[in-house]
Amino acid sequence: MKRIFLVALTLFTSLTTTSAFSAETVNIYSFRQPFLIEPILEQFTAETGIKTKVVFSKKGLIERLKREGKYSPADVVLTSNFNKLLQLKGEGLTQEIKSEQIDKNVPSQFRDEAGHWVALTKRARSLYVSKSSTLNTSTISYEDLSGEALSGKVCTRSGKHPYNLGLIASMIAHHGEAETETWLKGVKANLARKPQGNDRGQVKAIKEGLCEVSLGNSYYYGKMLTDENQKPWADAVNLVFPNQDNRGTHINVSGAVLTKYAPNKANAETLIAYLVGKSAQEQYASVNMEYPVNPSVKPSEMVLSWGEFKEDNISLTEVAKYREQALQLVDKVKFDL
């Protein structure tokens, strides 16, 4: 019986698997597109000799990881927002990352208390305002998006996108659910068109005169400025950091976790520590135009030229508590419909 089983298994395995266990490998499930992280991973391999293998998907990787359980080949999950980091931890799919380097390089509000996740980059949920707008951009706030002055002038992507959900959750954290619902209704009433497209698409719409203000992550400004086709869109707007008079601009992070059953744990820890180290942080800053989490690394020249701003310092764990309520509100006010 044992022999039959073994033969069948060997035959089948030789047909299907590429082994997850290899001395110098680290396996990554990535929510971020390969072309964003490839240069950094290549550099990592060049410096450490550890090869990286990636599966990229924007959807479903957490479910896959969960179902694979203790046999999962994945060592590291890279996410593009903090909600996924907290979901991974919440579902018990992570373990503590032990690294002095990480503790040294990453301020504590950007790491999990128990060490189950680490933020890699920061981005501001900023406003893009048409250069022809007469709004006073130095005092503008998220709250103003529901004001009468912006009636029919606001564009955004789906309210259910993690970046917007993060913002709405932070509104609930600051103002409570009832007030946030009123605000969200107001924003919906002010929309120039049904939520659609991505953050860049909204800036394009401003350029086209469809709207005056849009919500968008900060790094897209740099991405557009360096893309020949999209530069005209970026040239039509100013990047504005809202709520500078009070709590500061909402911050989202991309990050990494070490999976609970990581087969290549040591390599995975080396990778995560590398990602918050100087050279990777510099690459994130210069290639992706994001804000480094490592305070010893400066943002890129271009990002610095957008000016300094006050960040909303509320803890991400606190904001994440209201994520589901935020989603329910989006459905309740039929924001996307």
């Binding site: 044992k2 089983f5 073994l6 298994l9 089948f12 395995t13 299907t16 698997t17 082994s19 997850a20 266990f21 599966v55 896959r64 179902r67 694979e68 046999y71 999962s72 080949p73």
Partner: peptide, 17 residues
């Protein structure tokens, strides 16, 4: 089953292939 036969666990040979 493999482990109960004292074989090395083959990992995931169906899902993720």
């Amino acid at each position: 089953t493999a482990e109960s036969f004292d074989l090395e666990a083959p990992g995931l040979i169906l899902s993720g292939t």
